[in-house]
Amino acid sequence: MRIDIITCVPAMFSGTIDQSILKRAADKGLAEIHVHDLRDFAINKHNQIDDYAFGGGAGMVLMIEPIDKCITKLKSERAYDEVIYMSPDGETLSQGVSNELSLKKNIILLCGHYKGVDERVREHLATREISIGDYVLTGGELAAAVVADSVIRLLPGVMNDETSALTDSFQDDLIAPPVYTRPAEYNNWKVPDVLTSGHQAKIEAWRFEQQVQRTKAKRPDLLKNPDSED
């Protein structure tokens, strides 16, 4: 998989890309992340990429021309499955969306900044808009990093235990069950007996029950029928 990120603040990605899952995926040759500085496509010698909004109002708007130039260059080199604009009013990122994107080959993530992008970018260049929540950030960089992490970790071979991602919260519209590790007793706080019983069927049944109960208590909106155990 290849993810190309378009941003006017490329330095924000240096630590993210060089650490953790993203670095592991790159080292294994399973994913590539390329960050493109929008100012490399500026319209003049002053590196201008933004301007005032027509009609007035506070804040600057990223211009369509630099964005179009960057996307056009990238598309001349390869085909892209999606051009995603990171937007606070896009569809909300979910595990299902991450699962879907992990099946793609090439993706562009466009980071807005200031008051966002010229609307024509959304109308003619972006194929999809994604939000990580109902709040506003200074720019789309942090949101793009979240999308990249949530997608790349799902690629086969990235995680040491490929079944790990299948048991994450939200994979089955349920929250993950509680987990414990050694010691089995600490400060008189004990691990549930079933987890040390060695009876795998009982352990799996307990975990599922915990998932359902936790989801009912914490995220009942995920359950189609909150009163059902199925």
Score class of each variant (00 low, 15 high):
5 I>R: 03
98 S>A: 14
17 I>Q: 04
215 T>C: 12
47 N>K: 15
51 D>V: 14
47 N>D: 13
63 M>C: 12
162 E>C: 11
186 Y>S: 09
227 D>L: 12
185 E>D: 12
133 G>P: 03
150 S>T: 13
170 F>E: 09
145 A>I: 11
117 V>P: 01
39 R>E: 07
224 K>R: 15
188 N>W: 07
22 L>K: 02
38 L>R: 02
36 H>A: 10
125 L>Y: 02
12 M>N: 04
127 T>M: 00
67 I>M: 07
208 F>I: 13
197 S>T: 08
38 L>E: 02
85 Y>K: 00
166 L>C: 13
139 G>L: 05
212 V>W: 03
28 K>D: 06
147 V>H: 06
93 L>K: 04
82 E>H: 10
106 N>M: 02
73 K>F: 02
128 R>I: 00
121 V>L: 02
150 S>Y: 02
215 T>W: 07
37 D>G: 10
41 F>S: 10
18 D>T: 12
110 L>M: 04
66 P>T: 10
7 T>W: 01
183 P>H: 08
43 I>G: 06
127 T>V: 02
31 A>V: 06
136 V>P: 01
198 G>S: 04
28 K>T: 08
12 M>E: 06
121 V>E: 00
226 P>S: 12
201 A>M: 07
112 G>N: 01
25 A>H: 04
191 V>F: 07
157 G>T: 11
42 A>V: 08
175 I>Y: 05
7 T>D: 03
168 D>Y: 05
219 R>M: 14
118 D>C: 02
134 D>S: 10
38 L>I: 09
174 L>S: 12
150 S>E: 10
102 S>M: 03
81 D>Q: 04
61 V>W: 01
147 V>W: 01
51 D>Q: 11
136 V>T: 06
212 V>P: 04
220 P>W: 04
172 D>P: 03
62 L>T: 09
8 C>Y: 03
94 S>I: 08
119 E>R: 09
172 D>S: 14
11 A>L: 09
28 K>E: 07
12 M>G: 03
97 V>I: 14
149 D>M: 12
25 A>S: 11
26 A>K: 08
61 V>S: 03
17 I>F: 01
71 I>C: 05
61 V>T: 10
185 E>F: 11
55 G>D: 07
219 R>C: 14
174 L>R: 08
107 I>P: 03
122 R>D: 00
136 V>N: 04
8 C>Q: 09
54 F>V: 15
207 R>W: 07
94 S>W: 03
155 L>H: 12
7 T>C: 05
116 G>Q: 00
169 S>P: 08
9 V>P: 00
95 Q>F: 06
80 Y>N: 06
132 I>P: 01
146 V>A: 15
130 I>M: 03
73 K>E: 15
210 Q>D: 05
150 S>I: 05
111 C>K: 01
206 W>I: 09
14 S>F: 06
119 E>S: 13
160 N>V: 13
25 A>W: 01
214 R>W: 05
86 M>P: 00
106 N>G: 03
229 E>M: 14
111 C>T: 02
